[in-house]
């Protein structure tokens, strides 16, 4: 059976998802690598690595590239925006999804879908790092923590700090000041989660969100941000099992559609 692939070349990580042409759209394998060096080579390598995880021997017949590196992805049959792919992927994973919040490494997006998962509106922030994974990464570094520990630390917060700076550079110095005033790290981190959520929710509201709201992208692995978003939106949000590969999965689904239409 022929395989198709979706490759999402993001600013922080590159993701590849392999599907076959079976009706169930089941992910056969995926692979994630840090986006360091040649983006085109990365895209190809992540796809080959994902392919190696499959025992069956077969060839990838159709590839869709998405993400920031898509414009140079010469190995792909066609390219699609990460906006379309995240919508597609999220809807396939959670069919009741009508709104997708994606927080990636260098941008955040809000996507509105109709019942069939078609893109009907979107909003995007990529002019500055505030409200992105990069923001959390920078601040975590300033606090001497790993990004993956942020949620755990924030869970202990009693009184989250007010972080008023939306600019990453200023927020970093604000955090240093808060520490100097002997605020506990848990309250500082919880404050950061709240700050990023306020910024993202302001963007989400411009596209009139409808339920269900699905949270994707690398930052969706942070339970603290998820809870802060739920508090700001005053509603429950859903996180798919592998939030980081939703874009690549969406790209692979489109690859399958386009391949079968040939």
């Amino acid at each position: 059976m022929p395989f198709v692939a979706g490759v999402d070349i993001g600013s922080v990580t590159t993701k590849a998802v392999i599907l076959d042409c079976a009706e169930n759209n089941e992910i056969l394998s995926y692979h994630i690598v840090p986006s360091e060096g040649d983006v085109v080579a990365l895209g190809r390598q992540s796809m080959e690595a994902a392919l190696r995880k499959i025992k069956k021997k077969a060839e990838v017949k159709y590839i869709i590239a998405t993400g920031y590196g898509r414009v140079s992805a010469d190995f792909a049959n066609s390219i699609k925006t990460e906006i379309l792919c995240h919508g597609k992927g999220a809807h396939a994973m959670i069919p009741s999804a009508r709104t997708v919040i994606d927080i990636g490494g260098q941008d955040s997006k809000a996507i509105r879908l109709d019942e069939e998962g078609n893109l009907i509106d979107f909003a995007m922030n990529d002019k500055c790092a505030a409200g992105t994974g990069r923001f959390l990464e920078t601040i975590a570094r300033a606090l001497g923590m790993k990004v993956k520990h942020l949620a755990e630390v924030a869970a202990k917060a009693g009184r989250p700090c007010e972080i008023s700076s939306t600019c990453t550079v200023f927020a970093e110095s604000e955090v240093v000041t808060l520490r100097a005033h002997r605020n506990e790290d848990c309250n500082i981190v919880a404050g950061l989660h709240r700050s990023i959520s306020k910024r993202v929710v302001a963007m989400v509201k411009t596209i009139k969100p409808k339920k269900e709201i699905v949270f994707t992208g690398g930052v969706a692995k942070n339970e603290g941000v998820k809870k802060a978003l739920e508090a700001e939106l005053d509603t429950e949000i859903l996180v798919p099992e592998y939030p980081q590969i939703v874009g690549a999965y969406g790209a692979a689904l489109i690859a399958k559609e386009e391949f079968l239409a040939i």
Binding site: V71, K80, T81, I83, L84, L119, I120, D121, F122, M124
Partner: peptide, 10 residues
């Protein structure tokens, strides 16, 4: 580019 591309995909 990404906004315009997504707008046309819409």
């Amino acid at each position: 580019r990404v906004r315009i591309e997504a707008f046309l995909e819409m």
